[in-house]
Design a protein around this nucleic acid. Structure first.
Lengths: 349, 349
DNA sequence: CCTCATTTCTGAAACGATTAAGCTTTTTAA
DNA sequence: TTAAAAAGCTTAATCGTTTCAGAAATGAGG
């Protein structure tokens, strides 16, 4: 490994001069020496030692990214966004996958069970070279107190923390659900059912209130029979879908709170000989890859995952660079992606 | 930030002693001092500065992980495997996502186009703290010469490099395709068609030869009409599936080289009123999440992604630790996951 | 009481960079 | 002509560790 000293010796100057040349402090060194040193440095294939540099300058240009579980379908896109922004800003990424699902045997709600080990991991990461940390949740939840007394900035995404000092970036669940419902209303639907996720989860609650807001805003009635409790699984979508479609007064549209459950609804409808979108309109949530390949192709809600990652990285890096006067936290808009599972019945009506 | 010096001062000993205590060089320091120093260190919440340590010892316990594209469906599982092993061994992960698909606008075959920028990224990563690098491909391809003259070990996975010195870990395509075909033969099928990916791709070629090997080994005939050229997409699966199923002598089983194309076949069959698995057996490849939710649930081939990641990390770390006498490269076995898209027709026959 | 080993601890030199302060030399301005 | 300013370069301290050589203290054996 060739060091500054090696270059200095060959160029017959001091290390300081070489350092100045390498770092572009041109005003400090004459044109001819500068060029000569530069040439010698490239000839010798000199590469600065980041570790030494970090030690001296006390900034590593590295951020930590802590992922609750990378195998959860929405995380890769978020990471992609983080990477893009970080790379553009010249930051490196120190990575840690908590593997929460594995650790907890899929009982994800019991996150507190492994809080200690998570705390340790995060502690380690903080005392590595990370100047700050982005915490990427696997589900939209409150993770307050997961990370204890950190001295470096943390930005949360796909989750949030109520510790007063941390920033987060998320998507607007409530608004999205409202939009979906209004979209269906705009297509002439009045009998709109919803299949929820597990009721104790935050996205379930906020999406439900978005749905209700849209119904009320449009002077329609909230029918309790049209609110079915699912648990995010395909099976529950199938089950609840079947129930909805076999009542005396079935809905003309169903909003499933995720694509998996919407898939279940499609199966249920197929079994009952109900055609989508002719007899039933259906909207999902998540815009999972597979939803495109459903028959019919599913109209669904796209979560701006890439943007969330970008914004999280932006928030963190701006904090690191002392541009503290930026927005505290961000809630991004989702978008409805129109495919073939919804029909307009307003003309018929 | 509390340093060794701070602890030393408070404990009235030298930095060297504190260092020895912290690192467990107990034979060098008496029991009482050791305990006293330890107590003071924990009281002061001393945490060793990894950067300084790395600079001094010239080993960072960090490996680089370079991902061609993290949004490609199979990469997260691989990364998960890498993380698991690396964490167990106390290694940290420096992460870089090349974002190949974005950079190349999905013309993935033209990887050479951005070879220079990739080379630069990898160069940077090498000169960061990474002791070695794992390169995770997005597709199983030859990536020889993507990384030029690296002085540190590289392990490739989900791709390979013919540079003579590098190791790789992959899955056994040929064997898997042979297994699938023999599985179908075992279920009494004699008319087995195959829908390929793009013919120029390596996995396509190896899977095809596995298919042919199985056919010949079982003294069946290779029917050229039963080999249909697809391009990995759902649409091509639909197209080629339809062609196969509308010939005068249609196959009783189809092996689609990925789950996406198998999805297309399902749609084609549904459109033609052909029931799967009653009239047609179908096997896919990849075991993508969505394949579980197809109707019928798809029998497919599971690639040991997690294991690939683990093994890649193992290979690299053992290399770093000088256990050079291990196996050079690894080819892991895939496994057929049986679901509901294949029926046994041997009794009927 | 002296010598020699052993145990326990310290001093100081690295690791490879940055950077403030200082020293020459040249240029500028009065 | 000369003092001041500017340009160009070097010296040396520093970041927080590790580690080797050696010092000091203790103990054992004669």
């Amino acid at each position: 490994m060739v060091t500054l000293r090696d270059v200095a010796k060959k160029a017959n100057v001091s290390v300081a001069t070489v350092s100045n040349v390498i770092n572009g402090n041109y005003e400090e060194v004459g044109k001819d020496t500068r060029e000569r040193v530069m040439r010698i440095a490239t000839d010798m294939k000199y590469k600065p030692n980041r570790i030494a540099k970090s030690l001296r300058t006390n900034n590593s240009r590295t951020i930590g990214v802590i992922i609750e579980d990378i195998t959860v379908f929405n995380t890769p896109e978020i990471i992609d966004g983080i990477c893009e922004y970080a790379e553009n800003q010249g930051y490196n990424i120190l990575f840690d996958n908590l593997r929460l699902y594995h650790r907890l045997g899929n009982r994800y709600s019991q996150i507190s069970e492994c809080k200690k080990s998570i705390s340790k991991i995060i502690d380690t990461m903080m005392h590595l070279e990370s100047e700050g940390v982005i915490y990427v949740g696997a589900h939209y939840r409150d993770v307050t107190n997961i990370i204890e007394n950190s001295d470096r900035p943390i930005v949360y995404t796909y989750c949030y923390a109520n510790d007063g000092s941390s920033h987060w970036v998320n998507f607007d669940d409530e608004e999205a659900a409202c939009q979906v419902t209004e979209y269906l209303i705009g297509k002439g639907h009045k009998k709109i059912a919803i299949i929820t996720g597990m009721v104790e989860s935050i996205p379930c609650q906020t999406r439900l209130s978005g749905y209700q807001r849209a119904i009320l805003d449009n002077r329609l009635l909230i029918q309790p029979d049209y609110v079915k409790i699912g648990d995010w699984t395909y099976e529950s979508g199938f089950e609840q879908g079947k129930q909805l479609l076999t009542t005396p007064n079935p809905p003309t549209a169903i909003f499933a709170m995720n694509d998996l459950m919407a898939g279940g609804v499609i199966s249920a409808a197929r079994e009952l000989g109900i055609s989508i979108p002719k007899d039933l309109s259906l909207i999902g949530f998540d815009n999972r890859t597979c939803s495109f390949y459903y028959t019919p192709s599913l109209t669904t809600v796209d979560i701006p995952l890439h943007q969330m990652g970008r914004q999280a990285a932006k928030l963190l890096i701006e904090q690191l660079q002392g541009k503290e006067d930026t927005i505290e936290s961000i809630r991004l808009k989702c978008e409805i992606v129109e495919r073939s599972s919804v029909s307009d019945i307003s003309a018929v009506d």
